[in-house]
Design a protein around this nucleic acid. Structure first.
Lengths: 145, 145
DNA sequence: TGGATTTACATAGCCTTCCTATGTAACCAT
DNA sequence: ATGGTTACATAGGAAGGCTATGTAAATCCA
């Protein structure tokens, strides 16, 4: 039942280190919740509030509030869904695309500056990204993660 | 000046994916701030509030509040520093060690369940952990990250 | 030695980001 | 047509963060 303890520790460390990296970046890049939403919108394309909440793994009211804030900043637009009277279609504005690019540049600068001091190759970073992407890949079965 | 665009994207993705993993885990594991502090205390051993704040990259008042909460839950103890009248020595209690073990088990379960569906090897996960650890390694020069 | 600076921690006040519970309106299936 | 479901909004509150500031101990140095 108990898995390989090495794997167990690695998995736990990955979570802890992710949390710390997130904390570290948060000090430099403001409004991380909005940034996540912009990033998801860029990946999904125009989407409704509930779909965004699922993708970000937050509650629907939380995403409603996030989108509202982004709209007030002019970073996203909202229009009624053409055929479904209940739904909204949220999309990035030009300003939203620009802001997302700015955030990505900031993120990259913070990380590359640190990686430059190490002997890690781009391939190793790519492996890290691939592992995390697969961990977070949507899984129809379980809603737990 | 502008670095390899591939590397740039990888670095940015790593930040974004870390933020999402952190969000996802947060839904399962309560009080992430306290959990981070417990983890750091375990790595550092007994330490003062300011040292913990530096390690967690949060402000000193934030760590003061976190430690206060952990103390109220009986997860850490505090005693005056033996020689420095200003300082406190914070340490894990037995209950704190137990809680940390519980959190690590939860983290590991969440991640391993997802990794099991992929073809990633333990070595690849180890690479991911090593990369992130080096990104977060304390750097005397720059305080930016 | 003694005043100035630095360091360690606490307090106050505020903001963002989350949540659950609940409400409303539109859609859908019988 | 009406009962269940779905999409989103609102309300209220907790957690976690920050800056600014206060206090007291330690350290520095003239």
């Amino acid at each position: 039942m108990s898995p390989d303890p090495t794997f167990h520790n690695l998995a736990s460390d990955l979570v802890v280190l992710s949390a710390r990296l997130t904390r570290a970046v948060r000090r430099e890049v403001e409004h991380p919740a909005g940034a996540r939403a912009l990033s998801i919108l860029d990946e999904l394309g125009p989407a409704g509030v509930t779909a965004l909440a699922v993708a970000d793994r937050c509650s629907q009211p939380t995403m409603t509030a996030t989108v509202k804030g982004l709209e007030e900043q002019g970073l996203v637009s909202r229009r009624p869904h053409p055929t479904d009277g209940r739904a909204q279609v949220v999309d990035l504005t030009d300003a939203g695309h620009a802001e997302l690019a700015r955030i990505r540049r900031l993120n990259a600068e913070l990380v590359t500056a640190r990686l430059a001091d190490t002997d890690h190759t781009a391939e190793e970073v790519a492996t890290a990204v691939a592992v995390m992407r697969d961990i977070l890949r949507p899984n129809p079965q379980e809603d737990t993660l």
